[in-house]
Every structure is written in structure tokens, then in C-alpha cells.
Computed example of a mutant assay.
Amino acid sequence: MKEAENIIVGISIGDLNGIGGEIILKTFEDSRMLEFCTPVVFASSKAMNFFKTHFKSEINFHVINNLDQITIGKVNVFNCWQEPVNIEFGKEDQNIGAYAIKSLQEATKALKNNVIDVLVTAPINKHNIQSEEFKFPGHTDYLAKELGGDSLMFMITENLRVGLLTDHVPVKDIANHITPDLIKKKINTVYESLKVDFNIQKPKIAVLGINPHTGDNGVIGKEDDDVLRPTLQKIKASGKLVFGPYAADSFFGSNNYKNFDAIIASYHDQGLIPFKTLSFGQGVNYTAGLNRVRTSPDHGTAYEIAGKGVADENSFKEAIFSAIQIFKNRADYEQLTQNPLKKASKKQLS
């Protein structure tokens, strides 16, 4: 297995007018971070030096034009472009969105080619990244297309993990999206992630209801009784420890969430409001179900504070630590599940 500092963490720069540059600088100004990984920032030396000057940082960059020049133990900056970019903190800019996507595409290519081990994405603006070439609502959907697998937004901290049946779906369409096939697929993705990525051998999963009070026996909607409950019963009969549906309004306040390894919410705000209330600033957005590891902080571009030097880097730092740990856990799992008889027969044939 790789030594800790040899784990190469690719970092896409995100929206240059947001807080991405600042939280990257603050994270790696602490030289101890280089004991955990070797970062490669996908941006340009001009942009990173602009941030360095603006925030009066003393960080030293190792600027590279080819990815075979990555140096272990340095903060590498890969030039995805050479031209200067007009950075205006707090401003939504279509041109800046194009650079965010250029960074993401180069970092993803490096991830697919195993040049970097994991990817940590700084926040983007979902509006200004849209173009004829890029028509995805965000990182997760793009990476699912590029990397393959059943992607799932999985919000994680040390003591809380929340997955979603539906993520960026309008509220009026949620019930139509939740089908038995979707429920099975998402639960399976969470279950496998808990085993492989978090080393939990017998995961225990709670699922939150679709309607208030899980429909109150059909009085407030029939989807829980007609779709969710029978599907969960079938999954449980297959041997998975899956429980629910639980009424979402009291589930977190009663501390019931502490009895489970993961909670699956039916829709975005049902899961993310309690998650961010309980863990804001420490949470990590992990894309489970992909064949590569990708994490990001649990916040957005924060235009309102961009450039002011007050952004908190802790969630970004946690995203890096989580990516490294998941990468190691996957390696351990692969090693543990290799068939020794198969390995022996291969050795005999050689």
C-alpha cells in the first residue's frame, strides 16, 4: 500500500470568484498536511499566485506543465491554462465558470488515468458552469458519466452519514422519481459503500419516509405504503439490515440517527438540513458508488465572503482526510477479499 504522503490528491479549483482558492491556501499553509498527501491543484500558476498575494500567504508552489513532473511532498500546481484570468471575488461570471469546468475536466482525466489517487473538488456555481459542452447540474452527475457506477450523494462525518434517494430534483417531482428500482439501487450503493469505503461489515441503515408521518396510513399520501414500505420489506428479507420508513420530523431530534450506520433521506432538504445543522463546517460531500474516490466540502462558493480572508477551511480539510481514508479502506478491502486459492493457482501457472 502507498505511504501516506505518496497518496496524490487532485484538487479542482472550482469557481475562482468564490472561496475555493482561499480554503486551498489555508489548508496547505499547514505543512503537516504534506505528511498525509501530495496535492496537485488543477488551475494555473497565475491564478494561484494572485490568491497567494491577495491573502498574503507564504505558501510555496511547485508549478508543473506536465503531470509526470508531480513532486512528492510539494504543493503542486498544474497549469490547465496559461492566460491571465480576471478574478473578481463574489461575482457570478460565465467565463469563470468555463475555467472551473476546464479544471474539473483535467482533474477527472488525471483520475481516470491513475495519475492522481483521489479527487477533491472545490465549490462550483451550478449556474455559470452551464454551456453547450457542459450540461450537468453539478459535479456528481458529470463524474457519474465519466467514471461509471451508480453514483450517490453521501454526506459524511465521523458520526453521521446521510444518503439521498433523490438529490437535485424539484420538490413537486420527488414522489414520481421514487420507484422500487431506485430504492433498491440507492440502498445497495449505500450498503456497499459502508462495507468497502468505511469497513463496516454488517451495515445498519435507516430510511426516512416520503410524506409527513410516513403518510399516516394514506391520509397524507400513499407513496410510503404503496412503494417505500413494501420495497424495504423485500430488501430486509434478502438479509440487509434496513429499517423504516421513519417519520423524518422526529428522527434526528430524538437522536435515533445514532443507532444506524447511515440514514437514507427521500429528498435533498429532508437529509441535508439536519446533516448541516448537526455538522456544518465539518461535513464532507462524498460521491459513493463510483470506481474512484471523490469528495468535496459541504458548502458552496460563498460569494458573500469571498476575498475577505474569513473563509473556514475545515470542511475542505475534512474532505481531503476523508478521501485519503476511503482510498486506504478500499485498498484494505480489496486485499482482504482476494481469493487466496485463485492467487495460488495463478502462481502455479506462472
Rank of each mutant, 00 (worst) to 15 (best):
L143H: 04
K343F: 06
L25A: 11
G73P: 13
G309F: 11
Q270C: 08
I129S: 06
K26R: 14
I187R: 06
N66A: 14
G218I: 03
A4L: 15
E313L: 02
V196H: 10
D173A: 06
N314D: 06
A100S: 15
E133C: 01
G209F: 09
G215D: 12
A248V: 04
F154A: 00
N291L: 05
I264P: 09
A47S: 14
T277E: 04
T166K: 11
S238R: 15
L278S: 06
I8E: 02
N199E: 08
S350F: 14
N66L: 07
I116R: 01
A110F: 03
N86W: 00
D332T: 14
K202A: 08
K258G: 00
T301I: 04
P137W: 02
N188F: 10
L336Q: 15
I13S: 13
H139V: 09
D249C: 07
T337F: 10
K308N: 12
K222I: 08
M155E: 02
F243E: 13
I183N: 02
K2A: 04
L164P: 08
E132F: 13
E22A: 11
K222F: 09
L208A: 01
D216I: 10
K102L: 14
S44L: 03
H127N: 13
G73W: 15
S279G: 10
D216S: 12
F134L: 08
K56M: 12
T140P: 07
N114Y: 08
N49T: 07
A122Q: 10
D150K: 06
E132W: 03
K308S: 07
F61N: 02
K276S: 04
N17E: 06
I64C: 02
Q270Y: 09
V75E: 07
I70V: 15
I178T: 03
L147C: 03
H139D: 02
H54K: 15
D68C: 11
A302R: 04
S193V: 01
D150Y: 02
I263M: 05
M1I: 12
D312H: 13
L232E: 07
K342F: 14
F243A: 07
V242N: 05
L272R: 08
D150M: 01
I11S: 07
T166N: 09
V120G: 07
Q82W: 00
V115Y: 08
